[in-house]
Amino acid sequence: MTHEVRAVVARKKGAPVSVETILVPNPGPGEALVRVQACGVCHTDLHYREGGINDEFPFLLGHEAAGVVESVGEGVTEVAPGDFVVLNWRAVCGTCRACSKGKPWYCFATHNATRPMTLADGTPLSPALGIGAFAEKTLVAAGQCTKVDATASPAAAGLLGCGVMAGFGAAVNTGGVGRGDSIAVIGCGGVGMAAIAGAKVAGAGRIIAVDVDERKLKWAEQFGATDTVDSSRTDAVEAIRELTGGFGADVVVDAVGRPETFKQAFYARDLAGTAVLVGVPTPESTLDLPLLDVFGRGGALKSSWYGDCLPSRDFPALIDLYLQGRFDLGDFITETITLEDVETAFARMHHGDVLRSVVIL
């Protein structure tokens, strides 16, 4: 059986997206068909539309989603029809060398569904991050479905599927920020804001938000920043040092991903402190640091991919925090929209007018 559903498709590089009827097959072995309830508009989707990921057009966009499992294929035991799930783009294999070492969040052989979703004329679609959730239904590997408490709002829960988890995990999982620590977050978009909120949950003592946009710095205070630095007006490194007794922060998260912001993170951390790169660099970006400084300052320089998360562990835990009122996912939602509004949402996101637009289906 094939399901005809409405979905957001990017047909050509840089061209406006369109809402079209696509064909979604029933799940094969190890796969699940999910009825999507909500999907956040993430910057990665815009990267796909602009050809910044690859050129495998047409793309089925959307990946930051929650919904209900409608059916499963042969051999699926982790989820069942009727389960409320958050989708993830790293279904771990369980057998690679990382998984075998007990570090599945580094899995080197993550996988997606293999049966293709297509345009009405049969042209195969490339689902964004192996998900493609700007659609009424999508087909994914069963391991991409993480069952969570069904009382959670789909619009809020779906945000864990990418940006919020990446930022929270960059601070807590990768950076290891803990009770009483100091942390600076450079770049206060959705990912940076989640790092700030994560640091607050973890009990950080001083949380410094750095950005060039006064609006975002005001938002950062609502998410838990104790101090803000407008780096368009002052030297960010010196400001962070001044706020931390002249030493620098224990952890500095670069949520921008530019050479100059990572240099700020490197020099704004305390001796033996940790710098975390979670912002996605462009392919042409290069980093030039004096090797003696790398040696002499000690500590750790880390990259954080998906917040070093393990969805089966982290998604239910963060949903519990959300339901307890300790981590308000709803604060990340600027607006709720329809499939027809995705192109406008891209423009608003590009201009920094929103943290997250969320498509409700």
Results as ranks from 00 to 15, higher is better:
Q324H: 09
C309M: 14
G325Q: 12
F315E: 04
G298I: 04
L323Q: 03
L310C: 08
L310W: 15
G325D: 06
A300V: 00
G299S: 01
P290K: 10
L287D: 04
L291K: 08
S312W: 09
Q324P: 01
F295P: 03
R297W: 13
A300Y: 09
G298P: 00
G307T: 03
Y306E: 12
A317Q: 11
L289K: 06
L287V: 05
G299C: 05
A300T: 06
L292P: 01
C309D: 09
A317S: 13
R297K: 14
F315T: 02
Y306G: 07
G296F: 12
R313D: 14
G325T: 09
Y306C: 07
P316D: 10
D314L: 14
G296E: 07
F295W: 04
Q324N: 10
Y322I: 03
L321I: 03
Q324T: 06
L287F: 05
L301I: 06
D293C: 05
D293N: 13
P316L: 11
G299R: 02
L321C: 02
L301C: 01
F315L: 05
K302D: 00
P316Q: 08
A317F: 14
K302E: 02
L323F: 05
D308M: 13
G325M: 11
G307C: 13
P290S: 14
G325N: 12
D293W: 05
L289M: 09
R297G: 14
R313Q: 15
A317G: 08
Y322Q: 07
A300Q: 03
S303M: 13
R313C: 14
R297C: 10
P290L: 08
Q324M: 11
G298K: 01
Q324G: 08
L292D: 13
D320T: 12
Q324K: 15
C309Y: 06
P311H: 02
F295R: 07
R297I: 09
K302C: 05
I319F: 13
G307D: 06
P316I: 11
F315H: 07
A300S: 05
Y322T: 00
A317N: 10
L301M: 09
D288Q: 05
D320G: 11
W305I: 02
Y322A: 07
P290M: 07
L310M: 10
G325F: 08
L318M: 15
C309N: 12
Q324Y: 07
C309E: 04
L292H: 11
S303G: 15
L291P: 09
G299V: 02
S304R: 01
R313K: 13
D293L: 11
S304W: 00
L291D: 13
L321A: 11
D320W: 12
L321S: 04
S304M: 01
